[in-house]
Amino acid sequence: MNDDGRSDISLRVNDVTHGLNVDNRTTLLDALRDALDLTGSKKGCDRGQCGACTVLLDGRRVVSCLTLAVAAEGTEITTVEGLAPDGELRPLQRAFIQLDGFQCGYCTSGQLCSAVGMLAEHAAGWPSAATVDVSADASAQELDAVEVRERMSGNLCRCGAYPSIVRAVLETADQQAVTR
């Protein structure tokens, strides 16, 4: 940290390391959008209430509007742009297109990152408020629509694409279960 309230940091985003000089107050969201031109992450509220800015830090989902850029140093950051790094869409993204899991598309980046993180959380055995038996390994319990809705409730969608999003997530979860 420098005396002028700025810091030189390096952010590793989608497997690429970027050196940045940022105002210490800069959120990760603003650093991604304004400094790195990764505008897939959206600013729907800037208060952690809508989830449109959700990204993955070391595989865990965070709202990047409530994460300081300086605090993200040393983590592996994945944004929506990193979900298909070689240009080939991953199954979750294809399911969103085929099942119409979005309309305006503004919350979509956050929904996708959140879903990737959520599926990993379930697979790792983390329970949710909707999990019937929280003492057991949650990954052994079926991921159903109620679970997905509960776990995805931090991501608002005003177009109301929720039913299609849930179907897309469940279809992807089924495919992952088959390949595991």
Partner: peptide
């Protein structure tokens, strides 16, 4: 038919009014 702009929207490439460099 799925949306024509689907690939842009699921990969973060669709530019909205505040996204244009």
């Amino acid at each position: 038919r799925p949306r024509l702009e689907g690939p842009e929207k699921v990969s973060g490439r669709a530019r909205y009014a505040a996204d244009h460099p």
